[in-house]
Write a protein that binds this DNA or RNA. Structure first.
Length: 654
RNA sequence: GGCGAUGUAGCUCAGCUGGUUAGAGCGCACGACUCAUAAUCGUGAGGUCCGGGGUUCAAGUCCCCGCAUCGCUACCA
């Protein structure tokens, strides 16, 4: 256990998941974070700690509004529905959260406004007019240091202008030195260490100030700024503050805030590792204890994406294989902080080997013999049997180790260690051969010892695995004849937890084996079907049309058919390709940001659509004389426009 | 381009502050057993620890260079 969480906060835990943006159904990433926190909190509860587990939904913003419009409903109705879907999903996955916060709740809005006002009053929120020098071409602000000696934009060598955008900015840059210092002196504030380094490297250069508002006229679906009702907060002050508002609004601030642990996936390290601590500092609220960052589940070794058709639906898996088995797999097969690969066959193998063969079968064989030899009743310990004491010691050593591993976020090891002990129990059965003892009347006492030892091993295992598989472990204890009361960690520290003479209740196998061959066959069948629709099946995108233009304005764009005659990677930019395009009689050099989507070779000879009268611009040293058109797919994947009938290079497009 | 992470048996991964013949599970081969969910237990095959240098008595573990994959970041007319 790390030093900084010793005296003050031992015994109390406030754990959070991110609040999820309600524009999509929960996927395995959402589910993993939430299950992880569920397991972590259950372990701490098992140890007798005072625990508060928060999750929720992020419901404001333009996208929600658009999605609601597209669905033909109001934002409120829309978010009610989706937030309800998230809650239902978590319920089905056995998530025992204590509180569910929605950013549209009054209690949240009130706290957000209070915090905003406080930060504003002390001068850390400023109007965008003070934002600075803005290069129109770059569409970004520059600090004076970044500009050339003459005060020009380094990219375009034009004079930047003072931009008076109607936004408010949080003066985040001001807190950068403080945050660096804090991370230096508090090395495990962000963990594992790799993510701390990442944040530190972000802080080496200016982080700028953070835009935190949008005009209410454009985005009415948000929380109005308390001092300027014409603006609403944008994302950060709204969403991040949920962690604080959830307890502050319930009078639980003193009890839980000093013990807050955030759990997130690595994609949101920046807002949580940079924005959030500086916001807290500015608001005079103490920092979180740790920011705990986990990796991604890579599906078929690629990042999960809708366009690849490899989205893993947690509810389907839980349904198919059992929720507890699914949870076990997630916790067992990912090392905290690192990415892990998800293969459905791997899940099945894991569940069969560990849960069906080792744990489930140990229960089944033990209760089977108990029924046969002892009428299903719990025997006393008899004379010593070789290996019984060692097995007992092995189990009784586990609780302290597990608690420590959980504190270090080593859930995989905590679970593996317990399963190793279960394996040792199976070995003990083989070596002590109770079926042979049963044939020898003089060995009755030793048979008692063997059976009782197995029963106690199972009972202890059920306690140590209870946070991961609450339903199945309760069922296990039920089969052992125990009452349905919730276990405590102390139950795993004793070897006499069963009542002598009590009746066991052998039932169906706890974890039925999953037919792996059938699964493989099913995958065979599914595989070809997936490749058919690249984009055709993608959901329509809600959008807000740009301001109307007339035909003359459109005609001002000179769009032309072109043929790519050569193409190579830009020598000084990772994301750019340099195309040579034949447009009519002219040959143009066009720089385009499509390198991540197309190989240079595959473009040679292709027909493209070119904006021919764009003002040329130098991109990383190469002049681009135009632009090629492409469309963006659901996953940011670009698709170049081409023609479905031949038209010679230079033909006008209209 | 900058920063960071990862690269260990067919597969999924452990290997903490450098120290005996490099580990686990799955899969595979052979054997044992029969209480059990075609389960369990044992034995075995299988590795240039990404490549190349270096530091050290000693390196998978530290340093340098490179390769590959991933992430963040700049460029995305």
């Amino acid at each position: 256990m790390s030093d900084d969480r010793s005296a003050t906060d031992r015994g109390v835990l406030y754990a959070t998941t991110p609040i999820f943006y309600v524009n999509a159904e929960p996927h395995i990433g959402h589910a993993y974070t939430t299950i992880l926190v569920d397991v972590a909190t259950r372990y701490r509860r098992l140890a007798g700690d005072d625990v508060y587990f928060l999750t929720g939904t992020d419901e404001h913003g333009e996208n929600i509004q658009k999605a609601a419009d597209a669905a033909g409903t109001s934002p409120q109705e829309y978010t009610d529905r989706v937030a309800g879907a998230f809650r239902a999903a978590w319920d089905r996955l056995g998530i025992g959260y204590d509180a569910f916060i929605r950013t549209t709740e009054e209690r949240h809005k009130k706290v957000v406004r209070e915090v905003l006002q406080r930060v504003y009053d002390q001068g850390d929120i400023v109007y965008g007019e003070y934002g600075g020098l803005y290069c129109v071409r770059c569409e970004r602000y520059y600090t004076e240091k970044e500009l050339t000696e003459d005060g020009l934009c380094p990219q375009h060598e034009i004079a930047p202008e003072y931009r008076s955008e109607a936004n408010y900015f949080f003066r985040m840059e001001k807190y950068r030195p403080w945050l660096r210092e804090r991370l230096e002196t508090n090395p495990d504030l962000i963990r594992p260490a790799g993510y701390r380094s990442e944040v530190l490297s972000m802080l080496k250069e200016p982080i700028g100030d953070l835009s935190i508002s949008r005009p209410r006229s454009r985005v009415p679906w948000g929380i109005p700024l308390p001092w300027d009702e014409d603006h609403v907060t944008y994302v950060w002050f709204d969403a991040l503050i949920n962690y604080y508002s959830a307890v502050a609004s319930e009078g639980l601030e003193d009890r839980y805030w000093p013990h807050v642990e955030h759990f997130i996936a690595k994609d949101i390290v920046k807002p949580h590792g940079v924005f959030w601590p500086t916001m807290l500092k500015a608001a005079g609220i103490p920092l979180f204890q740790h920011l705990n960052v986990h990796g991604y589940w890579l599906v078929e070794d690629r990042k999960m994406s809708k366009s690849l058709g490899n989205v893993v639906r947690p509810l389907e898996l839980a349904e198919r294989y059992g929720n507890d088995a699914f949870r076990y797999f997630l916790l067992r097969d990912m090392t905290f902080g690192l990415d892990a690969s998800f293969h459905e066959v791997g899940l099945v193998d894991r569940v069969n080997a560990d849960l069906a063969n080792d744990l489930g079968n140990l229960l089944n064989r033990t209760l089977g013999m108990l029924g046969k030899y002892r009428d299903g009743r719990v025997p006393p310990f008899g004379p010593d049997v070789a290996g019984a004491g060692a097995l007992r010691d092995r189990f009784l050593d586990l609780p302290d180790r597990v608690v420590e591993q959980v504190a270090r976020l080593q859930f995989d090891r905590a679970v593996a260690g317990t399963m190793d002990a279960v394996r040792a129990a199976n070995k003990f059965v083989s070596e002590s051969e109770p079926w042979s003892l049963a044939k020898d009347p003089e060995a009755a006492g030793r048979l008692d010892t063997v059976l009782r030892t197995c029963l106690e091993a199972l009972r202890c295992a059920s306690v140590l695995l209870d946070p991961v598989m609450p339903a199945k472990m309760a069922e296990l204890r039920h089969q052992l004849g125990m009452p349905g009361t919730a276990p405590t960690l102390d139950d795993a520290k004793r070897w006499d937890g069963l009542a002598e003479g009590s009746a066991t209740r052998k039932g169906d196998p706890l974890f039925p084996r999953i037919d792996r061959a059938a699964l493989e066959a099913a995958i065979e069948v599914e595989a070809p079907a997936e490749s058919e629709d690249e984009a055709g099946g993608a959901a329509p995108v809600a959008f807000e049309p740009k301001p109307e233009i007339d035909i003359e304005t459109f005609a001002a764009c000179d769009l032309r058919v072109g043929t790519v005659t050569a193409c190579e990677a830009h020598p000084k930019a990772d994301r750019l390709l340099v195309l040579t395009v034949q447009v009519g009689t002219e040959t143009r050099t066009i720089v385009s940001g499509i390198r991540a989507h197309y190989d240079p070779e595959e473009l040679v000879g292709r027909t493209v659509v070119v904006v021919a009268n764009l003002k040329p611009v130098k991109l990383r040293g190469i002049e681009s004389q135009g632009m090629v058109l492409s469309a963006e797919g659901p996953d940011g994947r670009l698709s170049l426009l081409s023609l479905d009938r031949a038209a010679p290079p230079g033909s006008e497009v209209r």
